[in-house]
Amino acid sequence: MTGAGLQSLEALASAIPNGASVAIPPDYSFVAMAATRALIRRGARQLQLLAVPQSGIQADLLIGAGCVESIECAAVTLGELGPAPRFSAAVSSGRVAIKDSTCPAIHAALQASEKGLPFLPSRGIIGSDLLKVRTEWRVIDNPFPPHDPIVALPALKPDVALFHAPFADRRGNIWIGRRRELVTMAHAATRTFVTVEEVRDLDLMDDETLAAGALPSLYVSVIAEAKNGAWPLGLAGFYEADDAALRRYAELASSEAGFARYLGEVLGARQAAE
């Protein structure tokens, strides 16, 4: 493999330094859960999470395990399974700092970095208390008619983008299909770390239909293989979420003791496979 280097899952997790800002995709996208467990195993600390634009079990796990100092997000929830308990507890107590946002503001701020711009303007938001708590957001005058007030969102440039994908090719290009937020994350981030189900002996650029869903290795720093790397979440089009495992998490994570038990059960049991 040329371009991005193929490394072990442990090496990938070790290459994400403590204190790094880490952009992660939503639960319905391609989430690097095996890498998340590897980060917990290596005792990652003070991560500054950026949920693009929301997260679920991934952020909740990292927060519960003490890996997170702050989180910027439009929401964190376990969806049909209810609130994200470790997130709710940590944010209410102030143990984890929160930068509350709204989905399109996170997308736009990453797009600003994609384009090398200092900010992007956004509609909406004016009159929301988000403007009061996000003091770096500014209301400016649209310089063009109708000269209405508009919100300027400073660019977000995460140190790391981290996600899982169905496969990489032998040159380190990643197939992401239509999960284009992963492309935006990779364009905006300084370095992108990707786990994949497998490395296939082909070149995505040889086939236009595959190339259309590819993230070029140009943007990718590290790749590691992780079979079922999104578990217990699903990988849309490849495998479904493990409903029972997600339910088990929601039950146990509702208390700190239960969460510790979950970590004990899952980290050890999965390590052999990961």
Partner: peptide, 11 residues
């Protein structure tokens, strides 16, 4: 009490 967050509502 903390709720999940504003999602895309502000837009």
């Amino acid at each position: 009490v903390r709720f999940p967050g504003s999602f895309g509502s502000a837009y």
